[in-house]
Each structure stands twice: as C-alpha cells, then as structure tokens.
Computed example of a mutant assay.
Amino acid sequence: MATEKQIAANRKNAARSTGPRTISGKARSRMNALRHGLAATLEDHGGGTTSDTGLDLEALSERIGRIEVERGKLTFEIETQLWEGNGSSKEIDDRLRQLGALERYAKRSASALRKK
C-alpha cells in the first residue's frame, strides 16, 4: 500500500507528465512505436476498395506484399550467413527474432483487418 507521501509525489509527477506540447515533439513521439515501417503509410491510406465483407482490399494486399518482401530479405540474410559461415550465432539469432516478430505482426494485421 502506498503511503501518503508516495501518493503526493505520484500526483506531483503526474501533473508534469502531460506528454509533448510542441508540434515537433508530438511528431517525434508519434514515431516511438514504429519498429519497421511496414504499416506506416497504411494509417493514412485513403479511398481503398472495400469489399462486401468490409475489408479494405488494397490495404490488405499492400500490407501482405510488404510483409512478404521483408520475410524474403530476412530469410535470405539468414541463409547467406549460415551458408558462408560468417555470421555469428548472435547475428543469426537476431535475424530469427526479427522473423518471429514479423510473423506476429502479420497475424495481428490479418486479425485487425478481419475485425474492420
């Protein structure tokens, strides 16, 4: 349980934590969660072809295409490092981790598009 002193300190800190106030600060903080840019232009994507199911088919096609390109690049890098034997296990692990993250992103994207 928090003490009165801790609660007062939390309230004081919360009053100062209001986020960015300037236009440049807001633009910079908007990019904080951007990891790979695969969906960066999809939020501003307008006027797509919406099917009877409510899916934006152009956005879906574009997103899947970009994911597949990234998968291909990562797979090629992993194969090259393994074949040539010049990649350290840490580098290969990093690429495999990126590939797993990309797979999770693809699943989340498909799920989000189905919900729309």
Rank of each mutant, 00 (worst) to 15 (best):
L99N: 07
T53Q: 04
L96R: 15
G37H: 03
I92S: 06
Q81T: 06
A9T: 10
A9M: 08
A9R: 14
R30E: 06
G54W: 03
A2L: 15
G46P: 02
E58W: 07
R104V: 04
A59H: 03
G54L: 00
E4W: 02
G54P: 02
K115Y: 07
D44N: 09
G85Y: 01
G25F: 09
L82T: 04
L113N: 09
K73G: 01
L99F: 09
T80M: 15
Y105C: 01
N10F: 13
S24F: 08
L60E: 13
M1D: 07
L60M: 11
L34V: 15
K73W: 00
E58F: 07
K26M: 11
E68N: 08
K26Y: 01
A8Y: 05
L82C: 01
S111R: 09
M1R: 13
T22Y: 08
L57I: 08
A33N: 10
N86A: 08
I7F: 00
I7D: 00
E43F: 07
R95P: 03
E43A: 13
S61M: 10
S61F: 11
T49Q: 13
T18K: 06
S17T: 03
E68P: 02
A8K: 10
K5W: 11
L96A: 09
L34Q: 13
D44Q: 10
A2M: 08
D93L: 09
E4R: 15
T22V: 14
T80R: 15
A14R: 15
N32R: 02
R21S: 08
Q98T: 00
K5E: 14
E62Y: 14
R104Y: 12
D56M: 04
E43M: 11
W83T: 13
R35S: 12
G37E: 01
I7M: 04
G54V: 02
V69E: 14
I7A: 05
E84T: 14
A33V: 05
N13E: 05
